[in-house]
Amino acid sequence: MYEIKIRMADFGDPAVRALLMDVLGELSERYGGSGDDTPIGDDDFTPPDGAFFVADDGERLVGCAGWRRHGDDAELKRMFTARSIRGRGLGRRMLATIEESARAAGCRRLILETGDKQPEAIALYESAGYARIEDFGYYKDEADVRSFAKDL
């Protein structure tokens, strides 16, 4: 069995961009359209106002997650685990990495928005101590959005 390493990555790296196509593809399968139209700038995940992490199995990237500053909070974006690796705790490891990075940058909470067609993501967030908050962000007025937060 190989070890999956989580490391910081440049959001603009071609390998990261390729993985993000998988992220958007899966969101498109679940919700239709392009998957996620949330505006994201190339520098949104640049320290100290954000960070982007990937999970690398030694051959390819199998997961990712990033955070960007949202006032005093950090906003989780692009949390993803490849289908081939799901069920092995990688999502929980990625989430812990994001929380630690945002806390170290002085953020007081981690906030996120997901959708009702991602029950496994919702279950992960709730089991990790996240609670529902008032919807925010790009999709705040959509009926299927679910927003969560956790104090860091």
Rank of each mutant, 00 (worst) to 15 (best):
E26S: 04
L27Q: 13
S28Q: 07
S28N: 07
Y31C: 09
Y31D: 13
S34Y: 09
S34P: 12
G35D: 11
D36S: 14
T38W: 07
P39D: 09
G41N: 15
D42F: 14
D43K: 13
D44K: 04
F45T: 03
F45Y: 14
T46M: 09
P47V: 11
P47R: 15
P47A: 15
P47C: 05
P48Y: 04
D49L: 05
D49Q: 13
G50R: 01
V54W: 00
A55Y: 02
A55D: 05
D57A: 08
D57Q: 10
D57T: 07
E59F: 03
R60H: 01
L61C: 07
V62N: 03
V62W: 04
G63N: 06
G63R: 05
C64N: 02
A65G: 15
A65P: 00
G66N: 02
W67C: 03
R68I: 01
R69T: 11
R69F: 06
R69M: 10
G71I: 11
G71F: 02
D73W: 11
A74V: 07
A74E: 03
A74W: 00
A74K: 05
A74F: 01
E75C: 08
E75K: 03
R78N: 12
R78L: 08
M79V: 13
F80M: 12
F80N: 12
F80C: 09
F80G: 04
T81H: 06
S84A: 15
S84I: 06
I85A: 14
